[in-house]
Nucleic acid binder design. Structure first.
Lengths: 351, 351
DNA sequence: TTGAAAGCGCTACCAA
DNA sequence: TTGGTAGCGCTTTCAA
């Protein structure tokens, strides 16, 4: 006997597609009426609306995305360009990605994922093929090569980060300049006269990553203002890299008593290494991190930190993108004010 | 004087859309010919092909995705469902996501991002609205609630992870059972008689996350075979959680001399805490991790580890999805054999 | 308040 | 080897 029954059915068969015409027929109205019920673009009598909604539910109707995009020139998709770099803060990036996707859904949009390695060509492709209505770009550099493309594409776009020339573009970010400044103030207020910034990987600075430079300049400027001695070092995110940094920063005749760490990946190693060197936090050295709150909490010593509000930024980016889609809006650079939370890893200098 | 000039132009204007008809006209052929040149679905004379390609390049033509999807019932998009959980291994998830996106591009596909919080409804939505041709699902649980939906949708799908009943579904994953087993063998071969597994968060086990259970059972079974004493503990991924684990595992009259760590987030804290307790690795205690190689390398002590091949898995998942799209294919569960790399954190028991 | 129907840009069938 | 053209399912004008 030949195999038969449910198991011999082909693995994939097309499920019966329900169209707007099916709904219209079932509800006893015209397709255009169904369309208008869905879009709300013209007034519909209460009874008609109910009948239509009922049919939609019963038939399990879902508008065909392609057809809708073709007819309306709106895809209801936003493209999100994520960095591939591993020297970036992975958890922050991931938080951002999920926040964006979640926020997009609240506006009835989906997210198309682009990787940064496609570069400007990727942006072109997505726009020219009408795959998305708007673009959100992460990991923006100071001299961002994608910025001119974005401008000439004329597609609604939101940058996470601020390039040197944000003219005509919508950007959101944490106010890293203020963050750098706040960190210095916090430590200076506690009496520290010798502080140090342990920054991201040299590669991050080298390619002019927007936030790194801004944090650095806020840090330096305020250090000068407050008259504190401030060393700054890029730090390769490995245990050895960190060790080198510490050797430099904690040696000498005026070792740093306060460390600002703008490099999430080495927070753990830093605390281990300090412990190994018999330095206790915050008695011997204060540690102030720049990272998401949950990361700060999870360390061996809960860290005082300036939050990186990835979720808020994601939400905000989507919100601004939607505003751009709704019609011409003034380009703006929106910087969220930093929030510093003391968690016990920073304290007064012990004489 | 009223503002005028380039600056007063509206921020977004529709760029002139180039259609297949434009290309056809420019090349002096019919639209269908252009279409066939692009799809390769029928033979085209060399001269025609060249003329068409030339026009495409000159005009900068990009096929409209919506129109193409509507006409061909193929979106060239795969949906990727990512977990939102923060108790998961974020870097692994991110590696996987980027690997998937990159691999998809090599097949001329894009990736639509879905978050797991949409659940089965999200799968429904994407399929019913023809947003994607195939679905890749991460973070699969043993009694995966999305599995029945996936089966009845009949859409090509690939799971990362293996549910209890993978019947009719295509799955890829690391062979975690073998991985658990290999870890025990490695330590037993080094002479360890008392070993322990520090696993993922209790929440991960509680919801029956596929890989966690399989690793655990491989670990236990082999421990029994080899006659070694094997403790197993779930570990909340915080410093305190870890401390508790260690208190349990290293105390008693037969403390563990070998630790297998299937919890990436606590690797750093673990090493710090061991150092704090004056236990050196591997002299006093061997540590064997399950994590991506770069994470293992970056620790204070480079860790012997079983690799989690996120990139390979992403590629493979896409590859299998593409195969499913090409026509009926046998469902299969593809488990990658584990690879254990010794990096010096595991050694013989010191008597 | 509703319907009819003309496309949106592309694919793929039917002809040649 | 090529062209003509009928749709794919939807939105949106134009008319009633």
């Amino acid at each position: 006997m030949v195999h038969s029954g449910p198991d011999s059915s082909p693995p994939y068969y097309d499920p019966p597609m329900v169209t707007i015409a099916d709904v219209a027929r079932a509800a006893g109205v015209s397709p255009s009426t169904v369309s208008y019920v869905l879009s709300g673009k013209r007034s519909i009598s209460e009874t008609t609306r109910r009948r239509v909604h009922h049919s939609i539910r019963v038939l399990g109707y879902q508008p065909n995305a392609g057809a809708r995009a073709l007819a309306s020139s709106r895809t209801n998709v936003v493209a999100l360009v994520v960095p591939l770099r591993s020297d970036l803060n992975v958890p922050v990036v991931m938080e951002f990605v999920t926040a964006t996707a979640t926020a997009a859904r609240t506006y009835d949009h989906d997210v198309l994922l682009l990787t940064a390695d496609e570069g400007a060509a990727g942006l072109h492709r997505v726009v020219a093929s009408s795959l998305a209505d708007a673009i959100i770009v992460m990991d923006v550099e100071a001299a961002e090569p994608r910025v001119p493309v974005l401008r000439e594409l004329g597609t609604p776009a939101v940058l996470i980060g601020v390039p040197d020339d944000p003219h005509g573009l919508t950007c959101v970010d944490l106010d890293f300049t203020a963050a750098g400044s706040d960190c210095v103030h916090h430590l200076a207020d506690l009496g520290h006269r010798d502080i140090a910034l342990i920054g991201p990987s040299p590669a991050v600075y080298r390619r002019g990553t927007s936030y790194a430079g801004r944090f650095l300049s806020g840090f330096r400027r305020t250090a000068a203002t407050r008259g504190v001695e401030a060393a700054t070092m890029a730090c390769v995110p490995t245990y050895d890299g960190l060790r080198e940094c510490l050797d430099d920063l904690l040696a000498g005749h005026r070792p740093a008593t306060g460390l600002v760490v703008h490099n999430e990946a080495i927070l753990g190693p830093l605390l281990s290494e300090l412990a190994r060197r018999q330095l206790s936090v915050p008695e011997d050295v204060s540690v102030l991190a720049v990272c998401p709150p949950d990361v700060a909490q999870a360390q061996a010593v809960p860290l005082s930190s300036v939050d990186i509000p990835a979720v808020e930024l994601g939400r905000l980016a989507v919100e601004l993108a939607m505003r751009l889609l709704d019609g011409p809006a003034e380009p703006e650079v929106r910087l969220l004010p930093p929030r510093l939370t003391a968690r016990g890893s920073t304290g007064p200098v012990v004489a």
